[in-house]
Nucleic acid binder design. Structure first.
Length: 423
RNA sequence: GGAGAGAUGCCAGAGUGGUCGAAUGGGCGUGAUUGGAAAUCACGUGUACGGGAAACCGUACCGAGGGUUCGAAUCCCUCUCUCUCCGCCA
């Protein structure tokens, strides 16, 4: 949610932001409801104030007195009015809240304005894609690949997009998870292992609800959602809490499986490890002082980049344009690894600043220098999502003998300098 | 899954229908005292929404939702969560 006063006083700026993101949202409908709500609350407060005054008065009167009885008769009318007014206020508040939740965050001034992904800017590039491309093939076409990532049995057991990682494949996952967590730990992130299901309040705070309901698996019997990313439970860790200024910044990392229904995404992107319903990821989340959040975004991006560098995988960083920003984000960098076999860039990380948007929904605040309570800024970034890192590792490092040479940093975790496909 | 107990402010913990946003203690903050500190004393110390230039004022909030009543932290109903014991299990 954006700040209420900001929405009222800078509505033109908000309208522009909504337009630049290409999101369909009726700000004026909300502003109209906001006025109605305020008027309704004033009226209710007034009536309720009368009732309270009368109440105090009555406490001083003898219980059975004529005066007391007369007062009761009088107050019955008022009581009815208060109830009616309260009901209409509650109804207005419900509509108002729904409209409020439908307003997206707006892009930061440094974000390029463009309607679609073609407007994303290549911010930087690391490594040499050409070098690894020569004879590489897509991982899903490699002999033996299906023995370390078994899609067929996954489909039998669960459904499409839920593969088994087997043998070396499973060990590679475990190694990457531990490597990512170790690196985050060294950067001062506290490790958590979060719940994999969250309630609706949590999903609302981070912005999955009501905006992206269809993307999550929903367990209707218990009204719980399978997390699409560890961002959801982790960001909600401090929901409804107030930090003191020197608690900030607070940094947490978490490994978790992520579950995505990905409704509506079909086509060439979906082969092999490129897009799945369940995948593993290590996520970084930060709660920071509002003045620092854009510096923190750079630090977050660099943390994720450092992982790809240590894994010796060529990548590029994109500064996402307004039209490619999500509902909740003000600014976002995507990291894309070079897939030597598929000859294309694959997103492995997304580092975003939400400013106070999530914090306001989650009511995560801090006491600022003047002692006033204000929302913190939250950020998060993948560091990293596993499957596409795995495909790049395999495709880029496959040797003629069918083995995949591992980057130095992973070797201690696997106890070997290479893994074999197949066998 | 069964039985019981409970949920109040930063924490502990009073309050069983009216003057309760809520005693008291602790913590924290400011000040007094001190050479400095401890101890002691005084004052202060929630959040949200609304009104106001501001000081400040109003209203809501005692797990959540509903009900009874002129009036609810307090009575009734439903739900959620926590704790204890039993069962079951990793």
């Amino acid at each position: 949610m954006l700040d209420l006063k900001f929405l009222r006083d800078s509505s033109d700026q908000v309208r522009k932001g909504i337009r630049d993101k290409g999101i369909d949202c009726d700000l004026d409908h909300f502003l109209g409801l906001d006025q109605e709500r305020r008027a309704s609350q004033r009226a209710f407060d007034e009536l309720r104030g009368q009732q309270k005054n009368a109440n105090t008065e009555m406490a001083g009167l003898p219980k059975g007195s004529e005066e007391f009885k007369a007062k009761i008769t009088e107050m019955k009318t008022l009581s009815r009015q208060v109830k009616e007014k309260e009901e209409s206020l509650r109804n207005l508040e419900t509509d108002w809240k729904a409209a409020y939740l439908s307003i997206p965050n707006i892009p930061h001034a440094t974000v390029p304005v463009a309607p679609d992904p073609s407007g994303n800017e290549v911010y930087s590039t690391w490594g040499d894609p050409e070098q690894v491309s020569a004879a590489a093939k897509p991982h899903y076409d490699l002999p033996g690949f299906s023995q370390i990532v078994d899609f067929h049995r996954g489909s039998k057991v669960t459904g499409g997009g839920f593969p088994f990682f087997v043998g070396e494949g499973a060990k590679l996952c475990r190694a990457l998870i531990q490597f990512f967590l170790d690196e985050a730990g060294q950067r001062g992130y506290t490790e958590v292992l979060p719940p994999l299901f969250v309630n609706a309040a949590s999903a609302t705070a981070t912005g999955q609800l009501p905006d992206k309901e269809g993307q999550m698996y929903h367990m209707t019997v218990d009204d719980l959602y399978a997390i699409p990313t560890a961002e959801v439970p982790v960001t909600n860790f401090y929901r409804e809490e107030i930090f003191s200024a020197d608690d900030l910044p607070r940094k947490v990392c978490a490994y978790s499986p992520c579950f995505r229904r990905e409704a509506g995404s079909h086509g060439k992107d979906v082969r092999g490890l490129n897009r799945m319903h369940q995948f593993d990821k290590v996520e970084l989340v930060k709660w920071v002082h509002p003045e620092k959040s854009y510096d923190e975004l750079e630090e977050l991006k660099e943390s994720a980049e450092a992982l790809l560098q240590k894994l010796e995988l060529p990548y590029r960083v994109l500064l996402m344009c307004s039209g490619d920003l999500g509902f909740t984000q003000t600014k976002k960098y995507d990291l894309e690894v070079w897939s030597g076999g598929q000859k294309r860039w694959l997103e492995v990380s997304s580092c975003s600043n939400f400013e106070a948007f999530q914090a306001r929904r989650a009511q995560t605040r801090f006491r600022n220098e003047e002692g006033k309570v204000e929302p913190v800024h939250t950020l998060n970034g993948s560091a990293l999502a596993l499957p596409r890192v795995i495909s790049a590792l395999i495709e880029n490092n496959l040797r003629d003998d069918g083995t995949v040479v591992l980057p130095k940093v992973l070797q201690p975790y696997l106890g070997s300098d290479r893994i074999a496909l197949g066998q």
